[in-house]
Structures are given as structure tokens and as C-alpha cells.
């Protein structure tokens, strides 16, 4: 069975789906991602679906489940690159994918995650205030 690769970039896991999303593939991805989030301790997941022509209700639900699982594991999920035709079909079908955050492309998705992430605390605690006599 084909598998979707999960790439780690900094604090983000990047999943680019380039194959047909069959039900088994979607379920496998859900499992793999949960494992990888725990293993890497990443705080962000970006799922790129720009190569998908069809997003059916099962894939839509799986994406929502992945988002929920990630949130439990303290990682924010952003689905990026949905095609206009896919968006129109989903709207016509009345599926609005609640609970999924979206961005136009990977770049904007990463910016969105970076914005959520609070500024990392400088290592070694707060700087000593410079004494001014």
C-alpha cells in the first residue's frame, strides 16, 4: 500500500499528499502523523492537498480527525493549497470542514503557525537588567 511521507522541517511536520486519497491511505496517514507528532514533539502540522482533485466526505472527516488528534497532542494543523474546484464542490455538498484551519499555500500556512507560536523564551532566562547607577 502506498504511504504519504511526513517531513519534519524545524518545528513543523509537512505532509504533501501526491497520491489518490483512498480510505486506507487516509487512515494510515492519521496513524503515522500521531506517531510522528509524539516522536518529534513538533507543534505544527501542515497538510498540503494542492495535488488532490477530489476531496470526498471521508477524506474531509479524516482531515478533521487529524486536526483534533494533533490538537490533543499540542500541535496545530493547517490544511493548505485546496483547489478552487475542490472548494466549490465541498460547498455545493454542504461540507464546510469545521474545525480545520486553512491557508492558500504552504508559505502562508507556515506564517500562520509561526504567528500562533509564542516567541520562544530566550535560553538562560531573562536578561539581567543593566544596572544604571
Amino acid at each position: 500500500m502506498e504511504r504519504v511521507p511526513v517531513l519534519k522541517i524545524g518545528d513543523i511536520l509537512l505532509v504533501s499528499i501526491q497520491i489518490d486519497m483512498e480510505d486506507q491511505v487516509a487512515l494510515q496517514l492519521q496513524e503515522d502523523l500521531a506517531d510522528r507528532i509524539v516522536a518529534t514533539g513538533c507543534h505544527g502540522v501542515i497538510i498540503d492537498i494542492s495535488a488532490l482533485d477530489i476531496v470526498d466526505s471521508f477524506v474531509g472527516r479524516t482531515l478533521a480527525t487529524i486536526a483534533s488528534i494533533s490538537r490533543v497532542l499540542d500541535a496545530e494543523t493547517v490544511v493548505v493549497g485546496m483547489r478552487p474546484a475542490v472548494a466549490i464542490t465541498l460547498v455545493e455538498l454542504g461540507l464546510s470542514l469545521p474545525g480545520i484551519r486553512t491557508a492558500l499555500n504552504v508559505e502562508l500556512g507556515m506564517a500562520m503557525l509561526a504567528q500562533d507560536e509564542p516567541e520562544p523564551e530566550p535560553v538562560g532566562g531573562e536578561e539581567e537588567p543593566v544596572a544604571t547607577s
Binding site: 493548505v80 483547489r83 472548494a87 460547498v91 464546510s96 470542514l97 484551519r101
Partner: peptide, 12 residues
Amino acid sequence: LKTVVAARLMGA
């Protein structure tokens, strides 16, 4: 409304 929802799905 449909257009707005579709744009939201795409992240705009």
C-alpha cells in the same frame, strides 16, 4: 455566501 465559504475553505 457560497463564494465566501469556498474561499474560507481554501484559507482566504
